[in-house]
Every structure is written in C-alpha cells, then in structure tokens.
Nucleic acid binder design. Structure first.
Lengths: 193, 193
DNA sequence: TTACATTGTTAGTGTTTACTAACACGGAAT
DNA sequence: ATTCCGTGTTAGTAAACACTAACAATGTAA
C-alpha cells in the first residue's frame, strides 16, 4: 500500500484508512498517517484540512459504487439457491473492495453521529429491502416458504458480513468463501417449500 | 443505572461500561465516568488506578459466567429445531446480560492486543466447537444433512450476535426475538434431511 | 528566466486528558 | 475520644495531539 506511483492525496487516504481500520480513528495520529504515506504532516493537512475530513472523504468515495441495485434487475433467474449464491458472491466482492472503509465506518458511527447521514449507512438497509422484495415475489410464485420475508433478508445480508465486522478471528478455522457457500445453501434449502 | 444503593466500585464500573459501549473506550474521559457515577474523579482512580483497569476488570467479571457448556449436557433433546431454538434463547439471554461489556470488548480488541488473552475472547470460538460437535453427533444419528459442521455452527453463533455487534440499527424494522426465531427455524429446516 | 504549484521543515499554540499530591471531612468502629 | 476508612476538593503535572504559521526547496510550465 501507499506506493509512490499514486498521487499524494490517495496515498494519504489509503494510509489513513488502513490504520483507522486497524486501530480505530481516535487512536491513529495525523503524524502516523503522514509517516505511513511518506509525506510530511503538513501535507496531510493541506490536502484534508482536518483529520475527520480524511474519514469523511474516504466514506463518500466508497459510497459511490453500489452495484447491487442493478444486480436484482438483471441477474436474477428465480431459482432460490442460484440467486442467493450469486447475490452473495456479488455482495461480498463489493464489500471486499471497500472492506476497510466499511469497518471503520461501523466502528466510528457511534463517535460521529453525522455519519448516519452518509449513503454507506443506508446500503445494508436498502439491500435488505431489495432482498425482502425478492423473497415476496418468490412467495407469490410459490417458490418460497411462507414466512415474514424480513427475517431471511436480514439473515442473508448479515451472514455475508462475517469477516467484515471483525469477528472472523473468533471462528478462524474455516475459510470465508467456504463458509458463506455452505451457509447460504443450507438457508436456501430451508426456504424451499 | 448507577443508583446510590450500589457500592461505589460497581457504580463506577457500570457507568464506565455504559459509556464505553456507547462511544468507545478512548472517547470517554475519566471525569465523565466519575460524574455519571456521581463520584469524584479521584475516587475512580482510587478504585481502579488506571482507566484501562476499569475495562479489564469489567471484562474479567463478565468472563466468569458462561453457562453454555452445561446447556449442551443437560438440555439437549436431539431434535434439531427444538435444540437450536433453545440454544439460541439461552445464548442470547447470556449475551444480553453482558451485552455492553461484549460490545466494548469487540471494539477495543484491536486497540489493546492484551485483550486476546481474556476468556471472553475464547467464548464464541468454544461455543462454535460445541455446536459443531452437536452437529456431528446429529449426523451420526442420521438426523442431519451431510455437510461440514463448521459452517452451520458459525452461522448459528453469528446469527445470534445480530444486535450485539451494533448493526441492528441498520435493519431496525424487525424485533430481535422475532428475527432470530424465524432465522433459526429456516436454518433448522435447511439442515434436516 | 519567471511564475506557480506542491511539498518539506521547523517551531510552535492551545487544548484535552490521564493521573498525582496534599489536605479536609464525616461517619463508623474500637 | 480516637482512629481509620472511604470520599471530596482543589490544584496541578506532563504528555499527547490536532492544527497553524512562515519560509525554504524543488519541480514544472510559460
């Protein structure tokens, strides 16, 4: 990370997010960020003004790409297991890309109430709604058990977050990808009439 | 919280944990803890010496009760849905009791590497092992689908953590209890041959 | 060359904050 | 009545840290 081929702002941004994700916003000093980015502390402030701005900027940047809406319109084949597996793979790929920002975001949302206004915060909620809609449609088609669609929707989104939230060390002895595949398969089976 | 019927040390402890859970260890000042506990700041230091000690003390205290081992020995009836639901209810009750400490713990484990040594850290892992064992036994009895038992074990433990980890606001519109009941039921169904 | 933009350097300010020292007070036990 | 024990109060220290000011150096484009 933070090679000198990038431009300065990105170097700082990357170095900062790496550290925020690792040890929390408050524990990371601007000096440390500067050093990690091979830049003087002044340069950090010239680019971002305040430390908090670094975080805001990173979050806003990550909020831009959310390819999940289009997914539901284009890729769905109306087979439960197939769809859920495809969805999970897509979602996790998206999450992985912004994993660190996501992690910081979730950790700092209590310290900075203004973060609740950010798009990033609404993503999982919105995603849950998309999934719940999908489940409703499946029920109409008779391809899904009759349950409150909210619960499985939350479960699926949530299960995809193992590893991002930072408890993965607790369960360490299985690979992310294997886990999610198995879990989703079981879940799909449980939802099939 | 923090009524004056408690003795001082507990008052401080409670006030501190409440705030740590809400805004993170680093953001909470010792003065604030003292005020919240209706105690002078000096008293805080007289009891705990350092701020960090407050956290350590709380964690150690929470680590003592872990009633889940006995659960598996006594309450199991070898019916998947029944067992999983009972397990979930029991686990969640246990978690709820120590919810705040747990939350702080998970947030601060990156800031304080020494926390990894604490018992509390090993709980979920250990629990996952108990569940995985249970699943293996169920497979032998022919009452469970043939899968790697690790994956469903992680999933079950993890699903029970919704609401503790602090993403519950993201999904807000369903009650914890309802969610877990539905999710576990679906899951159990998916695991039944 | 000149002009401008980007970064570095150095030295600081002001604030926050964990933690200490020293002394005072009241109540309960002896 | 004296002795402590737990607590309050007040004043303070020392360090960390976000952020600023002023100027120098370097490179790049005109």
């Amino acid at each position: 990370m933070a090679t000198d081929s990038m431009d300065t702002k990105d170097k700082i941004l990357l170095a900062a997010i790496d550290r925020f994700a690792e040890r929390g916003f408050r524990s990371v000093t601007t000096k440390e960020i500067a050093n990690a980015a091979s830049v003087s502390e002044m340069t950090v402030f010239r680019h971002f003004g305040t430390k908090k701005n670094i975080l805001d900027y990173a979050i806003d940047q990550s909020s831009h790409d959310s390819p999940m809406q289009t997914f539901f319109k284009e890729k769905i084949v109306w087979d439960l297991e197939t769809d859920l597996l495809m969805f999970s793979r897509e979602y996790r790929r998206h999450i992985k890309k912004n994993e660190k920002v996501f992690r910081v975001f979730m950790h700092e949302i209590r310290n900075f109430p203004d973060l609740e206004q950010k798009m990033l915060y609404k993503n999982p909620h919105q995603l849950k709604k998309l999934l719940a809609d999908y489940f409703s449609r499946m029920q109409e088609k008779g391809k899904l058990l009759q349950t409150e669609p909210e619960a499985p929707a939350i479960a699926v989104v949530f299960l995809n977050m193992v590893g991002v939230i930072g408890v993965e060390e607790m369960f360490s002895d299985i690979k992310d990808e294997d886990f999610i595949k198995d879990a989703i398969r079981i879940f799909a089976r449980g939802l099939t009439p």
